[in-house]
């Protein structure tokens, strides 16, 4: 079972990881401990591997800092569900191997603290007896995600998916 951590619309990368806690400011081994330090203090201690983040519209806008989603990855986040994504954040998620699902209804249906199960490949999400179908990732992403991340894909194949 995974816990749902629900946030609102327009959550920016300064919210996810404030700039002053960048890895090169506080150390490579510590920066993830400051995830949501301003917005939801205590998050980094309470979150468990496999938990799911839920955002509203325009998730991850702002700075291109990949260490913001990287902090989430370090904390064991493997999937995010949002109503919509800012562009760079979306790319960073794919590159890191965090699956970015998109759905208005599912985001509206989920509550903070919900216990759910999510199949990352099929996009099937269950909450108790309820079953939601998320759109599975597109082929380009799925191909990359099969190797772990786009970085892993390129390392293994020496090219981009579909190239």
């Amino acid at each position: 079972m995974a816990r749902v951590w629900k946030f609102g619309d327009q959550i920016n990368t300064d919210d996810i990881l404030p700039g002053k806690y960048a890895p090169f400011m506080v150390g490579e081994d510590r920066f993830h401990l400051y995830a949501f330090a301003h917005l939801r203090p205590g998050f980094a201690e309470e979150v468990r591997p496999g938990d799911i983040l839920v955002f509203g519209r325009n998730a991850g806008l702002g700075s291109s800092r990949e260490y913001a989603p990287e902090a989430l990855k370090r904390l064991g986040i493997r999937a995010i569900i949002a109503k919509s994504y800012a562009r760079i954040f979306f790319r960073n998620l794919v590159n890191l191997g965090i699956v970015p699902f998109e759905s208005e209804e599912v985001v509206d249906a989920l509550e903070d603290g919900d216990q759910v199960e999510l199949d990352l490949e099929t996009g099937v999400l269950t909450r108790g007896e309820e079953r939601f179908q998320l759109r599975p990732p597109p082929p380009f992403l799925l191909e990359a995600l099969k190797e772990g991340s786009l970085l892993d894909y390129y390392k293994k194949h020496g090219r981009f998916p579909g190239e």
Binding site: S64, E66, Y67, I88, N92, F160
Partner: peptide, 15 residues
């Protein structure tokens, strides 16, 4: 703008 992984891939591949 892109993140560190994209930038590293762009430097490595030129694409």
């Amino acid at each position: 703008g892109m993140g560190a992984t994209d930038i590293a891939l762009a430097a490595a591949s030129g694409r």
